[in-house]
Design a binder for these strands. Structure first.
Lengths: 224, 224
DNA sequence: GCAAAGGTACTTGTATACAAGTAGACAAGA
DNA sequence: TCTTGTCTACTTGTATACAAGTACCTTTGC
């Protein structure tokens, strides 16, 4: 497992949560892997308590499954769960982008401009990991622009399942179309073109279908 | 605080979570109230650990706010949060009921029939608390009918804010229209009439606007 | 050889002890 | 009177100890 630096003032629990989450999404901790509270605690130089609390949090999002008195495991990727995540994302993203089309602050637009610029930069550099971060950030900025940040947080917890599937594929495929989609979405928001924006979200999400198929073919052992 | 019976095989953590959640939603624990891990633990005859874990869970849904080394408090009702909850519910409910209109099992329909019957029964009896439970259950059944139960769980966590506002008003108002709405929704699902179903969800949600206004007028001290 | 019993080493669940930080009471001193 | 320091009693955060259940291996008996 990759152990990042502990941020200043970060609580033990938050540190454990962040570490586990990143390792699971990046597939560094593979689906099916057993998670021992004691082992993780030792690895992070913490006691069991904060580690346990972090694991409970992650189990709430069904990304870790706890079997009392037996053990805890990184869940296998569940096709149905990924599908529902996709559905929620589809429905919320379309509703929110329409709000954003209704007008948002200069600030929010600037941040999105900057984000898209960086996406193009790292796309050329071929830095898939950085791209994934910017991708997530871009969609978050849309929610912020629509003043729906709490809703975004909720979306995030469900998106964990989706993120795992994207993780590997985005870092190898480096699809230029995804960045292109983001550019066009931003344009649609600026133009206040709801119809175009919704169509773009729809097209955008369909791309991940390929990711899923590719991953399922390449790593069937990750799936339930 | 009202302490329910502990269910058989229920873990201490689940028991603490359930107890706190119910007391908060029912406004038995009023917005702004301080929650002491020690006090709750004593009251439920548990140690701090499971109580603490339950409190952390509830803080994830922003229904309890934890100030480290200071104290934990039942959050005041946040208008923006209620608004976002309403938005999420609106968007998801409309999408899901359309799926249900696409056809669902005989079983699911039977359960909904039964539920609506009970709603009418308890409406006449004037049992608001029982009505609230049935109301929640009805909407859950729609999600189950659409095979979107995980999505419903996500919806639930955000709905806590909404539920608090409904709690008092539903128990006093006992609006016959709400039960009527449910009947019509069920009919629309049976008929596969998407358009009608969506319109009903829309109308249904608008009723709660009145709840909010009533509550804000009656209990301004509960709001942020 | 095989089956059953029991020990052992793990797991998570819960309880308790201690650490660290905050708020308020209260008294001492300017 | 007001300020300041300290003590006390609280809070949550973390560490540790113990309880209870599971899986597996080993040993014992046939």
């Amino acid at each position: 497992m990759l152990v990042p630096d502990r941020l200043p003032k970060e609580s033990a629990r938050d540190f454990a949560f962040r570490t586990l989450r990143e390792n699971i999404i990046s597939l560094e901790l593979k689906p099916g892997t057993q998670i021992s509270e004691n082992e993780i605690a030792a690895e992070l130089a913490l006691s069991r308590t904060p580690v346990r609390e972090a694991i409970i949090d992650l189990s709430k999002a069904s990304i870790i499954e706890i079997f009392p008195q037996k053990g805890s495991y990184v869940t296998l990727i569940d096709q149905k769960m990924v599908e529902e995540s996709r559905f929620v994302r589809d429905v919320l993203d379309k509703a929110v982008i329409q709000l954003a089309c209704g007008g948002c602050s200069r600030e929010a637009l600037n941040e999105m401009d900057e984000n898209v610029l960086l996406q193009q930069f790292y796309l050329e550099k071929g830095d898939g990991s950085r791209l994934l971060t910017l991708d997530n950030q871009f969609h978050r900025l849309i929610y912020i622009a629509a003043d729906m940040e709490t809703t975004y947080q909720m979306r995030s917890s469900m998106m964990l399942h989706f993120d795992r599937v994207r993780s590997l594929s985005l870092s190898t495929v480096k699809d230029t179309k995804i960045v292109q989609d983001h550019c066009e979405m931003l344009d649609a928001i600026k133009a206040g073109d709801r119809e175009k924006a919704v169509a773009l979200v729809d097209k955008h999400l369909k791309r991940y279908e390929l990711d899923k198929l590719w991953m399922r073919k390449e790593h069937p052992e990750y799936f339930k």
